[in-house]
């Protein structure tokens, strides 16, 4: 192995480990009695910079666990899952799963789903743009032809279901000055996260709306999706759903 490769690998090992850097690495540095501390600057920068990216991505998780605990979690995550992408835009894709593995967090059973919501929000923010479906694209369609249509959801659209009231937890914790109490008895919620234009929307939806969009995303036609949805939620009102969402950017141009 070339000197450059050897040095860079050994440097990376030293950045990532929670232990003291390897003696062989310190041997490669010019020593003025500060070699260890000088290396420590890079190690701190590596942890802090990537940890800050996580803090930006997961402000509500940070608020729920507190700054100090978040810093420790972020540090452990950076070491376990260093960035695999050239950009930090979507760093933290495994953070929700990672939180689930931390025994000390078992008292906050909703935390993983809150983290998922925060990641989903940012993913929608950076997702591809698309033109919304326009009324004239569906003009003069017979009812039968309409039922056979396959609608395309906006590329930013994602579904998220949780056993906990994560939408309320997430909304209330958007700023530091709210201290509303939320009872976990409020129970499950289903969300559609979508960015039709410039703003990411987090919508609380019924079981039927959730199922209907899930069916459409799995390439069902409008007719098939409606039928399947009817099985799970007979209350689902297709007319009402379409009057609100058919042309609001939830679906994109065909």
């Amino acid at each position: 192995m070339s000197l450059l490769a050897e040095l860079q690998r050994s440097f990376c090992d030293g950045l990532r480990t929670a232990d003291a850097p390897d003696g062989a690495l310190l041997e490669m540095l010019q020593d003025d009695d500060l070699a260890r501390q000088r290396f420590q600057v890079y190690r701190n920068n590596f942890i802090v910079l990537n940890g800050d990216a996580l803090a930006d991505m997961f402000p509500v998780v940070k608020r729920l666990v507190g700054d100090e605990a978040f810093r420790m979690l972020a540090t452990a995550y950076v070491r376990q899952h260093p960035p695999r992408d050239r950009t930090l835009l979507l760093y933290g894709d495994l953070f929700a799963d990672f939180l689930q593995t931390i025994p000390e967090l078992s008292g906050l059973p909703y935390l993983t789903d809150v983290a998922r919501l925060e990641f989903t929000w940012t993913a929608a923010y950076h997702a591809a743009d698309a033109f919304p479906l326009q009324p004239d694209q569906l003009q003069n369609l017979s009812e039968e032809a309409f039922a056979k249509l396959q609608l395309r959801v906006h590329p930013s659209l994602q579904l998220l279901a949780s056993d906990f009231p994560i939408h309320r937890i997430w909304s209330v914790n958007q700023s530091d000055d709210q201290d509303e109490l939320i009872s976990l008895d409020e129970g499950a919620c289903r969300l559609i996260v979508v960015r039709p234009d410039n703003e990411v929307q987090v919508r609380v939806v019924s079981e039927g709306e959730f199922e209907f969009v899930r069916q459409l995303m799995a390439s069902a036609t409008i007719g098939e999706a409606f039928e399947a949805t009817n099985q799970t939620d007979p209350q689902f009102d297709l007319g009402q759903f379409f009057s609100r969402h058919l042309f609001d950017g939830t679906f994109c141009a065909m």
Partner: peptide, 25 residues
């Protein structure tokens, strides 16, 4: 600088060893 030593990225600018080999790279 460099930020890619393994299959992951440091996202911080890391120092180079100033050798002819590094210069060629």
């Amino acid at each position: 600088s460099w930020s890619h030593g393994y299959e992951w990225y440091t996202h911080d600018l890391m120092p180079l060893v100033y050798t002819e080999e590094s210069l060629q790279v």
